[in-house]
């Protein structure tokens, strides 16, 4: 049941990304290129997603618990630190270079595009690299 519902959730997301244009780097980069070939379409993606999620989350969280779990797993940290801001700034540099963000690229794997596969392989390398660095830093901090 958990697997079927998760699959359906992924499918709705993947269809949304496909229709929205977020899987298309040309469109994403044009959104950010206000000084050049500007395409404001992605404002509508973000706007639509935010309005639905803002209202939907409030309706859903009135319940005691989700259907398949005992509790909602919502990030509780409120700390805005250098790691959060630095990481996000770095993410944006990569997004501006490649034109893909993770949520746009993962569904696009289904198009069979080699470009998408190259980006996703590199994305995985980046995630594993950062996880390794974080583990090492934590181990060093523990030893000292």
């Amino acid at each position: 049941m958990r697997l079927i519902l998760s699959y359906i959730g992924g499918l709705i997301f993947g269809l949304g990304i496909s229709l929205s244009g977020m899987a298309n780097p040309a469109k994403v980069l044009n959104f950010f290129d206000i000084a050049g070939s500007w395409d404001p379409s992605l404002i509508f993606v973000m706007g639509g997603a935010l309005i639905v999620t803002f209202i939907g989350y409030r309706l859903v969280m009135r319940r005691e618990a989700p259907v398949c779990d005992k509790q909602f797993h919502v990030p509780s940290s409120r700390t805005i630190d250098a790691k959060l801001i630095g990481g996000s700034l770095v993410f944006g540099v990569g997004w501006g270079i490649a034109g893909f963000c993770p949520g746009g690229a993962l569904p696009a794997i289904g198009t069979g595009s080699v470009d998408v596969l190259v980006f996703c392989a590199a994305l995985v390398v980046g995630i594993l690299l950062a996880k390794t660095l974080q583990t090492r830093a934590a181990a060093n901090a523990h030893n000292n």
């Binding site: 993606v45 639905v52 909602f72």
Partner: peptide, 18 residues
């Protein structure tokens, strides 16, 4: 339309899996 579906997916995952 794509954005609305992305939002629905987010709400659906919260409602089912939390």
């Amino acid at each position: 339309a794509g954005g609305v579906l992305i939002g629905l997916a987010a709400v659906f995952l919260m409602a089912t899996m939390g």
